[in-house]
Design a protein around this nucleic acid. Structure first.
Lengths: 249, 249
DNA sequence: CGGGTCCTTGACCCCCCTCAAGGTCTGTGG
DNA sequence: CCACAGACCTTGAGGGGGGTCAAGGACCCG
């Protein structure tokens, strides 16, 4: 009954909030660093009401059940959002990167916990202001809706992965997903993927354990499909072969 | 590698489309049967451009990859939407009931297959008209966005279930989900749940097999938490006990 | 140099999948 | 009305994929 109990050690090493990071909480009120937002039109107005904050790696941004006061948008870095079962089992429902939003809720509370994986720069804006802006700017509301719909599609793909794929297929799918998503940051056209998160994070994203993820990586490496480089870098040697193991037969 | 291969027999018994149901395709152009739509304001205008059609049980409405021409809203009955892997493994990503919409896509194609579970009455409307209506009626667009966001939340809950819950926990969660969702159709306040879908459908929704689902039902029955009545009816004897097994310890 | 985390690998086991058989129910045709 | 085929559900026996437990190595930091 008590199968695959989570290790619970994720809560131990995560800082309680990003507020007690005094040196880094650099609020650049004006138009500080200019970052490209290709998929959210009208972002300039959104930028105007947002503070830009920096959070250290492994910092909790907000917790499931807390009053949802602020929204965040990732400018740089990676954030994990997850849900917990009472006994500590964890399911990471997404890794967020530049451009992704979090903390949006219809109800009063956050529905998942958000923590930084790497050091992040984030836009933070009060929910009330954000909702007023949505009301005033139909174009912004439309692009937000498109974003939500895209997230829903990704969630359905992930359900297929969680419910019906084997361990090796899950890891292969994960690598290809990251390869296509972070095209900009990598050197070559998606041949190398950076994995900033731990094996434990990957496991909790794919519905596996750390050991099984590690074994799957080894299997893909032995099969000549990938190579594990230093610094959490993975080189995709045989992209078609990897895509083949993604779906079985 | 080729673990839990789906039986593929779901495709065999499903009718190809709901068009060849001549007697039932009653298109009531005007304001035919008046149904309550509590959660979609502005539904009257949406009703005006929609045909009301009836589809027999086990009928395919549209298929993943088809050109997304029409949207549907369920008026009555139950629809399953699912995604397939190339080798036939199936993941049902949702059971739709009265008020739920399907076929919405940003891209050109449907992203999942939709089939009726029971005989359904549906509202069908061309995508182009729907998008024009969204453009013209901000209130409708807002409610659609709220609907999409709610679906995303449900999807994240389901990811937690698929990735981290045991078989018995999955079935218990499934029963409680149906009990809270279909409050209106049941006689008592959620003490009895109707399961119109087969064990195989439930299995493909929960990431299990038919046999494991059946065994989980038996275990819940033996534990005195539920009773299996005839006609696919399940009586929830011990709701708190069922909720307890939902989350483990 | 010692303690910590993270990754990997091995040994073992258990939950769930697989395969199989039997029972029930339904629809159909004789 | 009954025989029969078919789908569906249940239960049992056995096996395998992945979880559990454990140990060792690499790396970082104090």
């Amino acid at each position: 009954m008590a199968a695959h109990l989570a290790t619970l050690d994720h809560a131990a090493t995560v800082r309680p909030a990003f507020a007690p990071v005094p040196g880094h909480r650099s609020v650049r009120s004006g138009g500080g660093t200019v970052v490209a937002f290709p998929d959210l039109r009208g972002a300039d107005t959104l930028e105007a009401i947002a503070d830009t904050v920096v959070a250290e790696r492994e910092t909790m941004l907000f917790s499931e059940g807390d009053a949802a006061g602020d929204l965040y948008r990732v400018i740089d870095g990676m954030v994990r959002i997850y849900k917990l079962l009472p006994d500590g089992r964890r399911q990471i429902v997404g890794f967020l990167q530049a451009g992704d939003m979090m903390g949006l809720t219809l109800g009063p509370c956050y529905l998942y916990t958000a923590e930084t994986v790497t050091t992040c720069s984030l836009q933070r804006l009060p929910r009330s202001r954000f909702e007023a802006l949505m009301e005033a700017q139909p174009a912004l509301a439309r692009s937000l809706h498109a974003r939500t719909a895209t997230e829903l599609v990704a969630a359905q793909d992930h359900m297929l992965l969680l419910g019906r794929k084997t361990a090796v297929e899950k890891v292969a799918s994960f690598l290809l997903l990251l390869a296509t998503r972070s095209r900009s940051a990598s050197s070559l056209g998606g041949r190398r993927v950076r994995l900033p998160m731990s094996r434990n994070d990957i496991a909790d994203y794919l519905g596996l354990t750390t050991e099984t993820v590690s074994r799957a990586f080894t299997k893909l490496k032995t099969g000549g499909l990938i190579r594990l480089l230093e610094g959490g870098l993975v080189e995709i040697v045989d992209r078609d072969g990897l895509a083949g193991t993604t779906e079985g037969a």
